[in-house]
Design a protein around this nucleic acid. Structure first.
Lengths: 227, 227
DNA sequence: ACAAATTTAGACAGACTTGTCCAATTCGTC
DNA sequence: GACGAATTGGACAAGTCTGTCTAAATTTGT
């Protein structure tokens, strides 16, 4: 991974810092302009380094692009798993806890800088790099859905939910919670805190109406009705 | 709209046919390569015309791109409204009818060539042409959601569903029905007929569990469980 | 303070694009 | 069959971009 150096002395931090700076600037420019439209000079300028430094670190444009996607995938996955770890296993108030979880997921994974960038790169360039994005698919959604499904299964086993197929339920949870943000996502925009909360609230409410234990039948009519 | 011609004789059909041919080839190339990566020579070749003809018809690359998006938007909207017209207002079997409707929607609008192309262009270039895609947003999703919400409201009023907010329900219906196709859509792929059916079936089942009238409480456990 | 490695700015060739121009050809129509 | 409009292919200038190279300046560790 690291460029060849003397036995025990590794390159100064500034070296690594610049590498990161370049990758981040590249992520931003690739997303804004597309792969073909991205300009190495612009990336260098935005990273605050010279063009030559970009080539020294990453070889060529395509390798830089791959590095960007790998980087984003890794960070996003880390964020997703960290957030899944906060899933409410022993909920005090199920609706409130699931809403809070959904909002965390949105804020820390789906809507943050890395999440939006990765999504856009996948959408725009996914077909051009099949193996790269197949890798993302396995590492990301593949493991993510399983992990989330396991949490829902546990919640069902503990009697808080009534679920036939945890995998389907997990995917539907996500779909419901993001239902009102689709168009904003499509255009690469950043929903407001309030929109996220509203979409999550409406989504969780419907999710519980479908999968909630029937004991508390008044759940759906309880809260304020967000338009 | 049409280019200036003599009073009563309009250009031969071949003229218009080539215009269409160019726009379709352009849609394909813009989607595959992105705006910046799209090459006019390639578009011309794919359309089976000379480069000069492309310029004769559309002026320049940007105007051609706008024409492509307008064209796709128009056709997609027409398809969407035509499909919404087949919404089951007086359902014989509610679940089966809604599944069939969802499958129609997917096949004729979301997953067909125009739908996939338009979605990709919006995702990739939406930020670069705010007013163009704002127009799409108003003409497309804006009116679509209203129309669909109205249908659900009628269904609720007729006693087939129990819905608080028809707009929310309409968005959630779409989200649920496409829940299992998200990743395929992201990568610009085309789901199989079977995947579409499965996602629709699972989605409608959950939708009815949440919004169905309680009379038939056994709805959720009825059908075969699609994994 | 010194020596080695890294970074920088700039020039550079090669390739590629866009959009224009033009003469020759083809096509549809009368 | 002949006329006029549309189409074609090719050449073309102007601009942009990638990736390389070099010599000078800077930074880093010792």
């Amino acid at each position: 991974m690291k460029p060849g150096v003397s036995p025990d002395t590794f390159p100064p931090r500034s070296h690594e810092a610049k590498r990161i700076s370049v990758v981040e600037a590249a992520a931003s420019v690739f997303c804004r302009e597309g792969y073909a439209g991205a300009n190495i000079d612009l990336i260098a300028a935005e990273a605050g380094v010279s063009r030559q430094t970009v080539y020294n670190h990453h070889g060529d444009k395509e390798k830089l692009f791959v590095a960007v996607v790998r980087d984003l995938t890794e960070r996003c996955n880390a964020g997703i798993f960290a957030t899944i770890a906060t899933f409410p296993d022993q909920p005090a108030g199920l609706e409130a806890d699931l809403v809070a979880f959904a909002v965390r997921m949105n804020r820390n994974c789906t809507c943050n800088r890395d999440g939006r960038f990765l999504r856009k790169l996948i959408q725009a360039e996914g077909e051009r790099y099949p193996e790269l994005f197949a890798e993302w698919r396995e590492q990301g959604p593949g493991r993510t859905w399983s992990a989330l499904a396991a949490r829902f299964a546990r919640l069902a086993y503990a009697g808080h939910l009534s679920i036939d197929d945890p995998d389907v339920a997990a995917r539907q949870f996500f779909a419901l919670v993001n239902a009102e943000l689709q168009i904003t996502f499509m255009l690469g925009g950043m929903p407001t805190e309030e929109e996220v909360l509203r979409s999550a609230t409406n989504g969780v409410r419907t999710f519980l109406a479908a999968f909630g234990r029937r004991k508390a039948a008044s759940v759906r009519q309880a809260g304020l009705a967000h338009a």
